[in-house]
Amino acid sequence: MSRPRWFAVRQELSPLRRRLLGGVAFLLPLLLWSIVSYVPFIWHPNIKVIEPGEVSWMRPGLQIPRADFAKEVATAQAAGVRPPTGERANPIYLPPPHAVGRALYTAFTTAPVLKGDLWLHESLAMSLKTIFWGFLISSAIGVPLGILCGAFVSASRLSEPFVDFVRYMPAPAFGALMVAVLGIHLEPKVAIIVIGTFFQQVLVVANTVRKVDGGLIEAAQTLGAKRRQLVLRVLLPASLPDLYNDLRILLGWAWTYLIVAEVVGVSSGITFFINQQAKYRSFDNVYAAILIIGFIGLATDQVLAFVGERLFVWKNPRPSRVRRFISATMARLLPAAPTEETTPAA
């Protein structure tokens, strides 16, 4: 057999290669960023002044475009005064990786500039609280309603056209209204997340429930299941793993609504932190905060995926290594009864 190829149409890769590519997916952007940051002649469009010479308006640390700086040097030389010196630098909005890496730590340890402003961890807690309540309220109504719509055509016809209509209204458009109704603190922000998530949620959940194999419903009916049991004992358990995955994806959407929700009323949470830091031109902190959102999102998703795989064993056609070992041992210890097929198809 020939060696497995990296690019074969629709062929699975070995686990090693999969993991390798997963790592490279993160390393590649980092590498690009490092090259742009640390190799001067790639970009570095500015000059950072080290020593202003006798140019009166320059200060150390000031950044100016390379062409302007060269002009100043030429003017100074022509006038016979000491020219300024400087080094090539990237714009302030593109800090190098190490600065952002440091900021990931220092952002938590640095007190806010203004007294009364929140520390980073407090801002994050605020954001998580907003997401938590928004997603909880949305799910508490959206999931049952979605299940009803998936189970009963009349429920679906009654609610889905309207839900579909509202879905097209951007959630932030309700910002001013929510502030008027709910005040300027946590409540309107939670409301924006609810509005942004809920309507999608109803449709997605309804669709997932509708995908349940109709044969299961019929089988349950011939076994005596009535309406209530068909919903609670068949549709619900049959769609649970997919519902779980839907909620995982919708939680990601809730995060995108967070950023607009947090500028509604009194700006708060991680968005407030980001805006504040941008105002102080501490872009390393801005990047750090954005990265932290990414980390939280990725981590929650991975944890939820891990939990889901263990929660819904019946959906997982590939038994875990431990499970395989147990069943293999069992098969060896307990010889099958004569009437039994001893080899279930893999």
Partner: peptide, 12 residues
């Protein structure tokens, strides 16, 4: 009672 061609066992 009914037995279907497509098994229709409850997978969970």
């Amino acid at each position: 009672g009914m037995v279907f061609q497509g098994y229709t066992l409850f997978p969970w």
